[in-house]
């Protein structure tokens, strides 16, 4: 029951993109086509899950050190450490992807390195640390948040693909229309609030 609540909360109610407004850059950047949106979603789910696991382990076992009877509180290093770990993780994924799946690597292009500074990933890590979740809970939360991001991205990409076929006024075409669509999509997700 607890995990269902965690899943519904992370995917629908507190959706990272549409409720918390984190990770807007790839949300607008990679949502032109469903195929690239799916690739990006896969990358974000992977990075978020791994980053949540590692950062929660760090925040639980490394940030408050007990050594020879003394307690060293290093929580002021939290953001710095998280960024370092996420950056290294993205780097490793990028290197592996270039070898294992060059097609996906090319499709993701600049957006994979951009996950480094994607606030959704850091946001998941920080929320986990603030709530004080266990490593397992945090990993699941990261995974569900990634799925929530993927859901928003794929929904938005399919909307934009259809909008490409429409003939809006010239001043609205492209990004303005995409932003309006994103706003309406976010309003739809407000309907889930209060669910858990």
């Amino acid at each position: 029951m607890k995990y269902i609540e965690l899943a519904v909360g992370a995917i629908l109610v507190y959706n990272f993109v549409l409720s918390r407004f984190l990770g807007i850059c790839p949300f607008l950047g990679v949502s032109k086509r469903i195929s690239t949106a799916l690739g990006m979603s896969g990358a974000v789910i992977t990075v978020m899950t791994l980053a949540s696991a590692i950062t929660s382990a760090i925040s639980r076992y490394l940030l408050v050190l007990k050594f020879e009877g003394k307690v060293y509180d290093l929580r002021f290093l939290q953001v710095l450490l998280f960024i370092l770990v996420i950056a290294a993780l993205v780097q490793i994924i990028e290197i592996s992807l270039q070898k294992l799946s060059p097609k996906l690597y090319q499709a993701l292009g600049i957006y994979l390195p951009l996950i480094t500074t994607n606030c959704a990933v850091l946001g998941a890590a920080t929320i986990n640390a603030n709530v004080g979740r266990s490593v397992l809970d945090a990993t699941l939360f990261g995974c569900f948040s990634g799925i929530g991001f993927a859901l928003a991205l794929v929904l938005f990409a399919s909307l934009r693909e259809r909008l490409d076929l429409a003939a809006p006024p010239r001043a609205c075409a492209g990004i303005p229309l995409a932003l309006v669509t994103a706003g309406i999509l976010a309003m739809a997700f407000i309907g889930f609030s209060g669910l858990c």
Binding site: F67, L74, L77, L84, V85, Q91, S96, K99
Partner: peptide
């Protein structure tokens, strides 16, 4: 302590990245 923690973590991550860059060249 913070310098040691950050330094060792940075070194560890650097080594891991280097290792991955080697096997996935």
């Amino acid at each position: 302590v913070s310098v040691i923690v950050m330094g060792s973590l940075g070194l560890l991550l650097g080594l891991v990245i280097g290792f991955f860059a080697k096997i996935f060249k």
